[in-house]
Amino acid sequence: MRVRPHQAFWLATAEAILARRTGSAQAFVEAHFEPFAIVAEGFLTGYYEPLVAASRVREGPFTTPIYRRPPDLVRVSPASPDLPGDGTFAQRLADGTLAPYPDRVAIMNGALEGMGLELAYVADPVDAFFAQVQGSARLRFPDGAEMRIGYHGKTGHPYTAIGRVMIDRGMLPEGGATMQTIRAALAANPDRVAEILSANRSFVFFRERVSMGEELGPIAAGGVALVPFRSLAVDRSEIALGTPVYVETTLPGHGPFDGVTIAEDTGSAIVGPARGDLFMGTGPVAGAIAGEMKAPARLTVILPRGIA
């Protein structure tokens, strides 16, 4: 509330109430909050923090770079219709003018080489791609040390789902695109990896993030560490960060799920009042759930009385 009051318009108003909390959490919420069902049709996906083998230097199989944010990449406010995508990112040229930033194809062809932006290197370009899709990753080096990386800007070009591209190009059946099937198809067709990845012109940059411990996830847009099955990515133009959201849905392989989450993150594909992306945790087990997660959902926001 004190560090990021701008994230939810009701935080400053509710601070005095929240500071007086006494008794059980349930009694406090029942006394001071009220639920509002979102009547739009809800849809929930999942995301996770990949665990990826990496090297600090380019050696052996580790040849695909994970890039820091370039110094000439700037955020534009207000958005410009002359820029691609949502018009919020651009390249600031030497004369101070703005231009579209080089897209994924240009970066894959060496547009950033020689700038010293490499945070680390991974062996599989598909791992690097999915780290960008998830917005974070935990890199594990040969000596056992780890580095957590998190989103730090993008080129601004529109995001294209490669699963849809692979369906259209005959690599996957209609309705058959999950993270697992995408990975399997690309592993079976290594000669087509560059072609498929290039279809998504958007490219994400990272920075090293402080680890809050093994049990918690990465630091995300809300400025706090994500908690498995309790942190939700939302469209922040519809639901302010910091808002409690009660989620009812079905998890693949696990059946019905319901619980209170907190809106703590955002994503370029998360658009709409009842669209959510549930954080599943770190590593391959969480990834297996997140990769299959596509389900109807009912979302209910929980707001202080008198605020809505």
Results as ranks from 00 to 15, higher is better:
270 I>Q: 04
52 V>H: 05
93 L>K: 14
212 M>G: 07
54 A>E: 02
84 P>V: 04
308 A>P: 05
247 V>S: 04
69 R>Q: 11
284 P>A: 11
283 G>F: 07
134 Q>K: 11
65 P>S: 12
29 V>I: 14
93 L>D: 10
269 A>R: 05
246 Y>D: 04
75 R>A: 14
216 L>A: 11
139 L>C: 10
143 D>R: 07
246 Y>S: 04
305 R>N: 03
188 A>V: 09
173 P>S: 06
82 D>E: 14
287 G>E: 08
11 L>M: 13
262 I>C: 05
255 G>Q: 00
68 R>M: 13
232 L>N: 02
29 V>L: 13
113 E>R: 15
98 L>Y: 05
152 H>E: 11
129 F>C: 02
307 I>W: 13
207 R>Q: 12
293 M>P: 01
174 E>Y: 06
306 G>C: 05
165 V>M: 04
33 F>K: 05
218 P>D: 08
196 I>A: 03
205 F>D: 05
166 M>A: 01
71 P>T: 11
12 A>D: 13
90 A>N: 09
150 G>I: 12
134 Q>G: 09
281 G>L: 09
139 L>K: 09
276 G>T: 09
119 L>C: 06
143 D>K: 03
137 A>Q: 10
56 R>F: 04
14 A>C: 08
159 Y>L: 10
202 S>P: 12
112 L>K: 06
30 E>W: 02
139 L>R: 13
224 V>H: 05
270 I>D: 08
195 E>C: 04
120 A>E: 10
43 F>S: 10
194 A>V: 12
112 L>Y: 12
100 P>Q: 01
51 L>P: 01
115 M>F: 10
95 D>E: 07
236 R>L: 02
120 A>T: 11
296 P>D: 06
25 A>V: 13
201 R>K: 14
58 R>G: 07
195 E>R: 11
180 Q>K: 13
132 Q>G: 15
40 A>G: 07
20 R>I: 02
268 S>R: 09
193 V>S: 03
108 M>H: 13
72 D>S: 02
293 M>K: 06
91 Q>T: 00
46 G>P: 05
56 R>Q: 14
300 T>N: 10
277 D>T: 12
167 I>K: 05
131 A>R: 06
307 I>S: 12
213 G>M: 08
9 F>L: 08
254 H>M: 15
18 L>E: 14
41 E>D: 13
251 L>V: 08
183 R>T: 03
83 L>C: 01
107 I>T: 07
64 T>H: 14
11 L>R: 15
55 S>P: 04
34 E>K: 00
167 I>Q: 15
207 R>I: 02
257 F>M: 12
6 H>E: 15
148 R>P: 00
157 H>L: 00
75 R>C: 00
275 R>F: 09
106 A>T: 04
230 R>F: 02
13 T>I: 03
226 L>E: 01
26 Q>I: 07
268 S>G: 15
268 S>P: 06
259 G>C: 11
93 L>I: 01
18 L>Q: 12
211 S>I: 02
256 P>S: 00
244 P>E: 02
169 R>M: 12
70 P>Q: 05
